[in-house]
Design a protein around this nucleic acid. Structure first.
Lengths: 244, 244
DNA sequence: TATTGAAACGCACGTTACGTGTTGTTTTAT
DNA sequence: ATAAAACAACACGTAACGTGCGTTTCAATA
């Protein structure tokens, strides 16, 4: 039989936490002294170990109470749900990391932040992926969209840095004459940044989509103004007959 | 000028949230009607966009208040801290995912859960990695430890499933005579499970460490009882002169 | 201008998993 | 027997709001 203090020392759980678990009925001591002090036996210790294990796995105390009431055969379902939550959370953190990197380099190259872009991006992410697809379904094939999503997911820190730099550079030179050599050089750098892997069909469809839709952002970090700049430089080059 | 209701509709933020932001001084409307109703202008809208962007990035409202008071040049530091937090969180979720998978397959193969193992594991993870290393430094080289950590990080779901299965199988047959063929077959399966990549030196050091240390778990999911079983089967085979 | 329904205000209590602090009681050590 | 330590029980605080609820103000109609 352990007093609450001994149990606390053995498990590393604070007395207040055990107090709380008693209060919410998650772990009630199986005995008490005449004076009312709580006494925990081996079975209680086992239950506490289970509670801590489940807590580590990310379950709430309420869920833990439920789980421990049921038989182990039903636990697999809870664990699978938890696994899915963990996977979703990992994806969220991945896109969050990319966002933070994008903003970081955005400050580095521009000394300022494109807030409205980030805001549009958030609204984009908060939508159901299905809904986003619908907006672009008229312009992009399923294959196209898969490519963009993959592209987004696989960007390394270096990719994001390079991509942010060329985009910020272009934003500073939006006023350039599309027919000028400088504009075309920027456009070439943008296109060759292996983001699209020289997939000109995809690029064409995307520019078409962007011309018609109002939002400034498609998929991070592609903004309408930059794509429009590229498009114009591209068309100018075609007019001059230097590309087909 | 927007009323709180209009602003709410435009941004998707609830009125109560705007109410709260006003209350904590995060977003105070720049004007009010005679009757006391709040009026937000364009600048307020911009500030709200920034707040939402920073919130999306994982900052607390308190942090956001601080950040928005400072100049953009100091923001990079905050973003980097946030990036580090995100990376740490991702690592936590990765090990958590592996734990959940381990438990999942543990139920599948054994119809029961080794709670004390999970509990030891938690205590292990809660320790400073430095402290864990210290316990094993007498037995394992830095190279060894790096291998184990890599091995742990790179396990796929399939690896975990296979690994859990062989471990659970062995746990059911701990009573087998180390000199028996069955014991040796299990030991061979365990060793060849590409976890150690036939690294017998590492395996030897690890068994030595496990013999002396009390904890049941080293690095998930390697438990003392199983390693001990392998060791005995291995020694039996050596005695019989069938391996060197 | 009076009325009325919608919008907004302000206040308070609920949420999660405890931390921190206080006061009074029980246990343990001397 | 007495001092010191441990414990019980209660209350308030945290973060970021959600959810009422009664009251006041606004905007549009009669």
């Amino acid at each position: 039989m352990y007093t609450i203090g001994k149990l606390s020392k053995n498990t590393g759980v604070t007395v207040r936490t055990l107090d709380y678990y008693d209060e919410i009925g998650l772990l009630t001591p199986s005995a008490k002294t005449d004076g009312g002090h709580r006494l925990y036996d081996e079975e209680d210790v086992m239950r506490l170990e289970r509670i801590l294990a489940l807590k580590y796995m990310g379950f709430s105390l309420e869920q833990i109470k439920d789980i421990l009431q049921h038989s182990p055969s039903t636990w697999q379902q809870s664990i699978q749900q938890q696994l899915e939550m963990v996977k979703r959370e990992q994806e969220r953190l991945k896109t969050l990391e990319q966002t933070l990197l994008g903003v970081y380099y955005s400050i580095e190259f521009e000394k300022d932040i494109d807030w409205s872009m980030i805001f549009s991006m958030i609204k984009l992410y908060q939508q159901d992926p299905e809904d986003i697809f619908q907006d672009y379904q008229a312009y992009l094939t399923d294959e196209d969209m898969r490519k963009i999503i993959d592209m987004n997911a696989q960007m390394s820190e270096e990719d994001i840095k390079a991509w942010t730099e060329i985009n910020e550079t272009i934003k500073k030179h939006l006023h350039l004459d599309p027919y000028s050599d400088e504009a075309w050089q920027l456009a070439e750098r943008w296109i060759s940044e292996r983001i699209f892997g020289h997939d000109e069909a995809l690029l064409g469809n995307l520019t078409a989509a962007l011309s018609d839709l109002k939002e400034g952002v498609v998929f991070y970090p592609i903004t309408k103004d930059v794509v429009s700049f590229i498009e114009h430089a591209y068309m100018a080059k075609q007019e001059k007959g230097e590309i087909k």
